[in-house]
């Protein structure tokens, strides 16, 4: 999957999470800081997002250890092949 496709998946998953919580998701940009406070997600939601992406892409960028990322774009890049 391309970086852009993964970015759209991230948007979709975050929308579902926000929907479950009964809140609206602000527009997601590539430089949106995922845990920066503007999005209604906590670290466990992020954990679940990462698991969903791994399932979807069959790619585990964290296999060799934790890799730093802050923004939605950076996360999409990690999973793109």
């Amino acid at each position: 999957m391309s970086e852009n496709e993964i970015f759209l998946e991230i948007q979709k998953i975050l929308n579902e999470i926000a929907e479950t919580k009964g809140v609206a998701l602000p527009t997601l940009e590539a430089d949106s800081d995922l845990l920066g406070g503007q999005f209604p997600i906590d670290s466990l939601d992020l954990a679940s997002l990462v698991t969903d992406l791994e399932q979807l892409t069959k790619n585990d960028p964290f296999r060799a250890g934790f890799v730093n990322f802050r923004t939605a774009g950076e996360l999409a890049r990690l999973y793109a092949k």
Partner: peptide, 10 residues
């Protein structure tokens, strides 16, 4: 448990 880079396990 499923290993997870953010939460250790989920």
């Amino acid at each position: 448990g499923v290993p997870n880079p953010i939460a250790g396990m989920i």
